[in-house]
Design a protein around this nucleic acid. Structure first.
Lengths: 341, 341
DNA sequence: TTGTAAGCGTTATCAA
DNA sequence: TTGATAACGCTTACAA
């Protein structure tokens, strides 16, 4: 069943059916109604590929997510998806785990004929305006690495200063009397935001003349279970650790449980700070102190910015949003000497 | 930049370029290499719409998810996505929140030219073989309502017996001495699996001659925060409640925190049982007793079944998987009189 | 092994 | 207000 069949049954030309489908004005009410009737009766659904193939303005906005199913991104996606749809665009969501994020982005735009893209995560350090020379889609990179420092003209970005956030978090712990601070990273191969957070950790230790110890670092693969397992091991081996900084709340949950199961009291024996500001950190008992990313602002701003770019109402811009240390019960302040935040 | 341009630059015919792109054997190594070279040099990416338009075998498998970003489904998706890709198919993920799940499914198949679809969630009670008369895509419904009772020939399903699971959970609580059992449902309008779980609750109360009290029921919108708020209110008004059954672990987190914040001890003052068996239930402190859905089995089975259907190696089937009550510390067994599970 | 040409199902242009 | 027809970029007979 295609547009020709409908045209034949309705005894009109294919272009008339097309006009009806696309709500073009120049069709008589009578014809319009008749055609709709036939379309409904036959459960006719236009072939999207053919449409996209032909159309120049697809009104498609792509969302490219690095890493499969990161819960923090899920919460952002929920908001973006609402914004895209209420602006009359269709959202095409693509998750990937490819090596080359730039090629993946370029391919995605071309393949889906996108008007605009929002990228969640990924490594765009190598991205240059040259790559985007012949790309006419609007691009907003969200929660990516230090691409902003290049001040690219052909794309926008919304990010937080991960290094600074980590630095200040560690500073906060140090000011609370902690010197032996463990860190839970995602993956050894991380080069994006995880790397920046690690740099902030290193940098804070240096500032306060605290020796960096390789053996205080573990990897949690962004997974509660892995974080749990490795934290238990860490606590067994490194008895002097008094605080742990974790690059995601999801991992922090596992770390918290490991702290309990190792016989410590969370927030007294050992302090814990997570990252992201997810609901789960708030509802844990005790709630987990976390570096809250401005989820709503990030999401809303990214879709607003994209729409403005599409309407040529703004130039590309690189926005840095502030983070907030949300204090829960997982972090001791008994030796409080003031905070860095 | 299209296939013609590449052909022109490489001084070959378009079909040769096409053959190279699709790894067809009958191209000389020399030509193949030359064409690849030109393709790479020009950053050429084939237009997917045109491909799909032409191809009959798209090797596209769709995954249709009801409700935007349910974390339990996310965990299932992670597994499915791996299975789809390693079988050489492309996964097209679509989230929706439409009224009519059947129409959405049919439209999805047609629009994307899918070979097969997996549906996560949704209401397919009205689905009949007639709807699928002219559909040649393989369909596997996962975690949907009682569609299995119809024993449809044109689609498969993988589900758990939600009513029975809920019944046995409540029975377990009753056997542990609880009589005043609150329940946290998702949304008032739920007609799918949430409804079935509610029916199990009602049915268990009836079996044990316990009066059903409307005021013990609250709604959490599948959201920790909402569940938290409404549970606090519930505990304030209904002082005799000693246990709460929650239709999702995500909501159970909020409920747990509300129990703490109302001055009770989780697992002693008030017991809590969640549903789904998510990581978060395990890593909460104390861990939350939960009705564990066989996530891995569900995911693996759904993709395996779909692939077999595509290869015509099996008929459609309706599989019911068992659930397991995973006991955590959130549930008192002090008045233990034996368990129903 | 390679090239030519016919279609896939739409939309857009143009003429009626 | 309508309808015929030429694209859109690709794959695939079929012919060379």
């Amino acid at each position: 069943m295609n547009i020709k069949d409908i045209a034949r049954i309705a005894k009109v030309g294919v272009s008339t059916v097309s006009r009806v489908l696309n709500n073009h004005p120049d069709v008589s009410d009578e014809t319009r109604e008749k055609v709709w009737q036939i379309i409904k009766e036959n459960n006719y659904i236009p072939n999207n590929s053919a449409r996209v193939l032909k159309q120049t303005n697809t009104r498609n906005i792509g969302v490219l997510v690095k890493g499969v199913f990161n819960p923090f991104f899920s919460e952002i996606l929920k908001i973006i998806s609402g914004g895209v749809e209420s602006a009359g665009y269709t959202m095409i969501l693509q998750h990937h785990n490819n090596e080359n994020d730039i090629d993946t982005l370029l391919g995605f735009i071309k393949e889906k004929r996108l008007q605009g893209v929002i990228c969640l995560g990924g490594n765009f350090l190598e991205l240059d305006d040259e790559h985007l020379e012949n790309v006419d889609a609007a691009i907003v990179l969200v929660s990516v690495d230090l691409v902003r420092i290049k001040n690219l003209k052909k794309c926008s970005s919304i990010s937080i200063n991960n290094k600074k956030a980590a630095y200040e978090t560690i500073e906060y712990l140090i000011n609370n009397g902690h010197e032996h601070i463990g860190m839970v990273l995602g993956d050894k191969k991380d080069i994006g935001v995880g790397r920046e957070r690690f740099e902030g950790y290193i940098s804070a230790l240096e500032s306060y003349d605290i020796e960096f110890k390789e053996q205080y670092i573990i990897y949690g693969q962004y997974d509660s279970g892995t974080a749990y397992k490795n934290t238990k091991e860490l606590l067994e081996k490194q008895k002097d650790i008094t605080a742990i900084f974790c690059t995601s709340d999801i991992m922090a949950i596992g770390v918290a449980k490991a702290i309990f199961d190792s016989g410590y009291k969370l927030g007294e024996g050992i302090s814990l700070i997570g990252f992201d500001g997810m609901d789960i950190a708030k509802y844990y008992e005790p709630s987990i102190t976390t570096v809250k990313q401005p989820k709503y602002e990030m999401s809303n701003l990214s879709i607003e910015l994209l729409l403005k770019l599409l309407n040529r109402e703004t130039k590309n811009q690189h926005i840095i949003l502030p983070v907030e240390l949300v204090q829960g019960g997982s972090c001791s302040r008994n030796k409080c000497l003031g905070t860095g935040l």
